[in-house]
């Protein structure tokens, strides 16, 4: 009576365990295989452009389908600048929201606000793009940019970033929209890690007479460093790769400009715009080469993030 079920259980685990192990292992390998395939395709696809342009591909600002001369600089700079603006806007805001939700917010509205922020993350990026183009851009052109040009424009050095006619569309607007798009991601993760801080630590700090700012600065942030860096990296990864929303509001111009209000382009926006109609081996290859550059860039960003995480762990 006693033995039968046990034997049955043993038999199940004799087959079940290896099967489960094999299943998980093969799924993991599948991911690696796909990643390897992507790397291979990108490298193989970008060989023609490196053959024609050489290393110039990595250092020129040209992008001319007529003469078949391509360089990554303009889209690369655009990608980095818009991502930087997005981080400058998104990170502090997200931290503030997360802190408010975990420390200051009355209990009964905490959940509705959290859900509202998570809903923002579920909005498809094309909606952000259309909203940015039709609603934000005209307002930006008529109300915000003229003020920025008048107030910040005359300042030496810094003023160079705020020059030129107010068009609405441009790198600044793209960066701001991106900042809004990454906000829910960073907020959701930081809120979770902030609430993982043991109450006893916080209470003790308040007990010692710390202000709220001191609690954030000296207790919460140091305690959650790892998780916070992870959240920021998640946001940065998304900002670097975002395509549709940026394509709508950046102006899609292959030109370098010191002004943030000038139109520009990013790697993913260039791919979205030009891949379908790219004719000729070098042109297609240049676009795949852009993909490779973005891949390498994202890889380094993630690697750097992991390094920071490890260091923070020690």
């Amino acid at each position: 009576m006693d033995e039968a079920p046990r034997r049955k259980g043993n038999a199940r685990s004799r087959i079940g365990d290896p099967l489960f192990k094999w299943l998980t292992w093969s799924f993991t390998m599948l991911v690696l295989l796909i990643l390897g395939g992507v790397v291979f395709t990108l490298v193989e696809g970008s060989i023609p452009v490196f053959k024609t342009m050489g290393l110039d591909f990595l250092i020129t600002a040209k992008w001319n389908p007529v003469t078949d001369q391509y360089g990554v600089i303009v889209p690369l700079v655009g990608t980095l600048v818009t991502a930087l603006i997005a981080m400058l806007v998104g990170v502090p805001t997200s931290f503030a929201i997360a802190f408010f939700l975990t420390e200051l917010c009355p209990y009964f509205i905490r959940q509705p606000i959290s859900i509202a922020i998570e809903l923002l993350a579920a909005v498809p990026s094309i909606i952000y793009g259309i909203w940015g183009l039709f609603i934000v851009a005209p307002y930006f052109q008529s109300h915000i940019e003229p003020v920025l040009i008048a107030v910040l424009g005359p300042i030496p050095v810094l003023g160079a970033l705020f020059q030129g006619p107010a068009i609405g569309i441009g790198m600044l607007l793209a960066g701001l929209i991106l900042g809004l798009m990454i906000l829910p991601f960073i907020t959701a993760v930081t809120r979770d890690v902030f609430s993982s801080v043991p109450a006893v630590l916080r209470e003790s700090a308040y007990g010692l007479g710390c202000t709220r700012w001191e609690v954030v600065r000296r207790i919460v942030l140091p305690y959650c460093r790892t998780g916070v860096v992870g959240a920021v990296m998640l946001g940065l990864g998304r900002a670097l790769g975002e395509t549709m929303a940026v394509t709508f509001v950046i102006g899609n111009a292959h030109r370098l400009s010191t002004s943030l209000m000038a139109p520009g382009t990013t790697i993913s926006a260039t791919l979205a715009n030009e891949f379908t109609e790219a004719v000729g081996d070098v042109y297609t290859s240049a676009l795949i080469g852009l993909g490779l550059v973005l891949f390498v860039l994202t890889f380094f960003v993630l690697a750097l993030g992991k390094r920071l995480l490890l260091r923070a762990g020690h």
């Binding site: 040209k62 992008w63 001319n64 389908p65 007529v66 068009i167 569309i169 394509t247 709508f248 102006g251 899609n252 111009a253 292959h254 139109p263 382009t265 979205a272 715009n273 030009e274 109609e277 004719v279």
Partner: peptide
Amino acid sequence: NTSVEWPVGLGGK
């Protein structure tokens, strides 16, 4: 060409 290096202006998709 089907796409060129435009000297001025803004691009729409």
